[in-house]
């Protein structure tokens, strides 16, 4: 039987979509809006660093960021494919999307290890 790699991409897409749906809105509200607008006091630098360095926090941050990238890669690939009917560029689109997410994942791993 012809095997397909789609289940793999789809599982990353699904995991990323779930993590993003649960965690990104509140993270964005706190870091991108509430603190910059002064609605909430920014926690001290030392405390943020200490929290982010916790192994659990590192794991969580890595998964959230990396899987969000793969979530985008998979969805956006099909949006280009169907939405703009770029079927003939299928391979190129796939390489750019999943490749981009992989670069982002490496960057996230590097950043979090050196935190």
């Amino acid at each position: 039987m012809k095997t397909t790699i789609e289940p793999f991409w789809w599982s990353l897409f699904g995991a990323g979509g779930t993590l993003a749906a649960l965690f990104i809105p509140i993270t964005l509200i706190i870091n991108g809006l509430a603190i910059p607008l002064g609605w909430l006091d920014a926690p001290a630098y030392e405390n943020v660093l200490q929290l982010a360095r916790h192994p659990l926090a590192r794991t969580y941050l890595f998964l959230l960021i990396s899987l969000s990238f793969y979530h985008w890669a998979h969805r956006f690939r099909f949006t280009l494919y169907d939405g703009l009917q770029l079927k003939h560029l299928n391979l190129l689109i796939a390489v750019i999307c999943y490749g981009g997410a992989t670069v982002g994942t490496i960057a996230a791993g590097y950043t979090l290890i050196n935190l």
Partner: peptide, 15 residues
């Protein structure tokens, strides 16, 4: 059935 459905033209085409 899987040989037909678990393919790029089968379920994996669906968005």
């Amino acid at each position: 059935r899987n040989a037909i459905l678990n393919t790029d033209e089968g379920i994996w085409q669906c968005t």
